[in-house]
Amino acid sequence: MNPDTRDPAGAGDEMSSAAVPAGLPAAAAIHRRVLASGVALDLLVVPTDRGAGSSDASMTDMTGLLRDWVSATAGAALAVVVPLYDCLVAWAPGRAAIVGPPEHLASLETAIIAFAAQDASLRDAERRGTAILDAIDADVAASTEPESWSREQQRGLTSRYHEAVTIGCRLSLLSSAIHAPPIHPPTLVTQLGERLRDRTRLVERHELATERAALAERVSEASRQRALELSVARQQIGLEWVIVVLLVVQTALLVVDMLASRGAT
């Protein structure tokens, strides 16, 4: 397999526990690829003869098998099947299947790995963004009563703000890959990547995740700012009251001193 697909950190290949579905050619094999982010991908590789186009009956029969196999972990709703010219690719989070002539398999795997990394990164950003938004309601409500916050709550709001900024940065780094225009003349890698991005609506999901991250950042920043301003204002009010108390006590001391000295005379 293409050494470029190995994880730079050396995690690379692992043995997969998944079994090759029945009905596939004997040369079919499953490899486990570990992406740089640590996400694992079970890759089912099925070599076929060149000229057996993706519209052939054999390929058509395999479509259902492959869809079922990739759906096993992530569910059928997330599975996509992309028929290319003499290749067939099925994908779902965590699993992928590539069917094609041997000379195409390396390119297909490269494209799958790259897409899987993009998808995993996007899913992670989606999940983390959703978690932040779930907590946003409480943050907004609590920001008007900052003195009632525990240290844990304060740390939580700060961490959510940092998280939102981090997610936004990751999404912007991902943007160049996701929003890259179709390349022409295309290669097999670019064709598959474009088809997968289109089928999984990666662009729309990225836009939504970016909006959510921006919303989370704005709201958490506003909450922090509001809480800070309220705290500062209340500290200022407290200091002002301290001054008032000191002045009152000083006045009382002066009055006592004055009255006592008048009484003495």
């Binding site: 186009g53 290319l84 010219y85 003499d86 195409h104 390119s107 003349p185 295309p186 290669t187 097999l188 670019t190 064709q191």
Partner: peptide
Amino acid sequence: GSAVHVAGHRIACLDD
């Protein structure tokens, strides 16, 4: 559409 059929071959990308 990416495929160009030339001289009996289907060329859909640079790899082909």
